[in-house]
Design a protein around this nucleic acid. Structure first.
Lengths: 198, 198
DNA sequence: GACAAAGCGGAACAGCGCTCCGTATCGTAA
DNA sequence: TTACGATACGGAGCGCTGTTCCGCTTTGTC
């Protein structure tokens, strides 16, 4: 577990350029497909989305768990890096927070899928979860602080608490049309936005 | 949920005799296959074990959840009826208890499979769980009492507690050779058997 | 430019869930 | 007892899946 490169995946030095390209494409494609079709999405669909053959997937990620874990780390890194970027690009700190949470919700699909994909290896899962907290809680806190400072939201909410709340809202969303976590998350956000005093 | 017939499944009056026969065969076969291959066992395997065609399975149980639920109820009833029977047939109340628990452990595979097979319909699951408790706790208590009265085991153990303990021991036994719940259950039983005083 | 080596794609195979319909069996009324 | 609908049965067949394997392409190097 040598968390070396700050920009996410280790570039696998010595690898050919096309191999590195494909690996990145695969990670992005898999992340997107997981959101729309769940972590059990057909391999073919992921390959097609990435524009590669199936053999390429199996070469890079021999088992489904390998792929899910890789996507997970990739997403954690992407989410962590998106925080500061959004803060400068979005029209307000609150907008940045909302967009970041949107990314975060997408990511939770992978995170929850990870739990089932790794039911045997709980120690490995714990390590990944620690990595998740280490990288994302500070980013969320930064976004929260900025929004508070700008007067967009009320103070007093902790990053860990918010992330955990959102995470819990997103449990059990197996394409049940009666339960849309995003609606509830949006509610949470609006509650954050409006100060309680008249 | 009209729990009418004390002997388990409602005989489905008006149905043809062979249909009733096949339904029973299917329930027994599925229960057996679940134990050896899990609740995700191929439909073909269940059909073959029951000696029927696949069409027959789908006619009786349109979805996998239907089959699992039916097996579940069938098993609860079988387990409940086995208690008194074992008490008269086994060589001692303790032997009866042990044999009954063996049945119970088999049954737990179905019960745990049920949870995943019904992840959407939690209210239906609760009803089934209540049925499970209503029928089996008294039977277990009866076996326990008999063994205590006979001096086979120490007193003071409650049926619900024992059943729940065994249930928990049987969590996560997905063909992992390093974890055999039956060994631990046997240990529990031996602990029950031997009074602590010298 | 030439040439290994590394990597790629997708045809091919095996196994699965599920459907459909010709056939066999059952219950019943004559 | 026989005859005849109604009911239920079986399994071939279809479409989808994971996984492997190998001929072909791309890459980096000299």
């Amino acid at each position: 577990m040598s968390a070396s490169s700050p920009s996410g995946e280790v570039p696998a030095r010595g690898k050919r350029a096309d191999a590195v390209r494909n690996q990145q494409a695969l990670l992005s494609a898999a992340a997107a497909v997981f959101v729309t079709s769940g972590v059990d999405a057909p391999i073919r669909e992921i390959a097609a989305t990435a524009g590669v053959g199936m053999g390429t997937i199996y070469r890079h990620f021999p088992t489904r768990a390998d792929l899910v874990v890789a996507v997970y780390r990739h997403q954690v890194d992407a989410c962590a890096e998106a925080g500061p970027t959004l803060l400068t690009s979005a029209e307000s700190p609150f907008a940045a927070l909302r967009q970041w949470i949107d990314l975060f919700v997408d990511f939770l699909v992978t995170k929850h899928g990870l739990a089932t994909a790794m039911q045997s290896d709980s120690s490995g899962f714990d390590a990944l979860h620690a990595y998740f907290l280490d990288r994302l809680v500070p980013v969320c806190a930064q976004l929260l602080d900025a929004a508070v400072t700008a007067g967009d939201i009320r103070p007093g909410t902790h990053a860990y608490e918010l992330m955990r709340g959102i995470g819990n809202l997103c449990i059990g969303r197996d394409n049940d049309p009666r339960y849309d976590p995003r609606r509830l998350v949006e509610l949470l956000l609006q509650g954050l936005q409006r100060p309680q005093s008249p």
